[in-house]
Simulated scan of single mutants.
Amino acid sequence: MDEYTDLEALSHRALCDMAQVRPVLDKIADKWTILILTVICPKPSRFNELKRRLDGITHKALADALKRL
């Protein structure tokens, strides 16, 4: 019986941990956000510089991704 109780407790804890992590994953889990982070992590960049470095991103997609971040 203790084994099942321990498994239930671990399962509940994992679900609680996921509830805390999920909002962060939702913010960074799209194509452009990861690419934006790889550009701005080494040094801050202005909007137009980011747009030039991220070939193919639209103005709206960049603006929306930056707002989410």
Rank of each mutant, 00 (worst) to 15 (best):
M18E: 11
D17R: 08
A19V: 00
L69V: 05
R68T: 07
T38S: 12
E49Y: 03
R22S: 09
R22K: 11
E8C: 13
I40E: 01
D6W: 08
M1S: 12
H12M: 13
M18T: 06
R68E: 01
L54Y: 05
R13W: 04
A9R: 12
I57T: 03
W32L: 08
T33N: 11
V24T: 08
C41H: 15
V39Y: 05
K60C: 03
R53N: 09
G56C: 02
I28Q: 03
K27Y: 03
A61M: 03
H59R: 08
A61R: 04
T33R: 12
L7A: 10
D2K: 05
K27A: 15
R53M: 07
L62A: 09
S45H: 15
R52F: 00
T58Q: 04
F47K: 11
I40D: 02
T33P: 02
H59V: 06
L15E: 15
L10D: 13
R46T: 07
S45R: 14
M18D: 06
S45Q: 15
D6V: 15
H59W: 07
R46Q: 14
L66H: 03
D30K: 04
V24D: 05
D55T: 06
R22D: 03
I34C: 06
L25F: 13
H59T: 04
A29V: 05
G56K: 03
R22Y: 08
A63C: 09
T38V: 12
A9C: 12
L54G: 03
R68S: 06
C41W: 15
L35Q: 02
L15K: 14
F47P: 05
E49N: 07
W32P: 00
E8Y: 09
K51Y: 06
I40G: 02
R46C: 10
I28K: 01
A29I: 05
R68K: 13
L54S: 00
E3N: 10
P23D: 03
T33C: 12
D17I: 13
L50K: 03
I36V: 15
M1Y: 07
A61S: 12
D2N: 07
P44Q: 00
Q20N: 12
V39F: 04
H59F: 11
D6T: 10
R46I: 09
P23R: 02
C41V: 14
L25A: 05
A63V: 00
W32I: 02
A29M: 10
L25K: 04
D64T: 04
P23N: 07
A19Q: 10
V21M: 09
N48A: 12
A14E: 05
I40Q: 00
D30F: 01
Y4W: 09
H59E: 11
C16F: 07
Y4V: 08
D6G: 09
Y4M: 07
T58S: 10
E3I: 10
A14T: 00
R52V: 00
T38N: 13
K67V: 06
L37T: 01
D30V: 00
I57A: 03
K60Q: 13
N48Q: 14
K43L: 14
S11G: 13
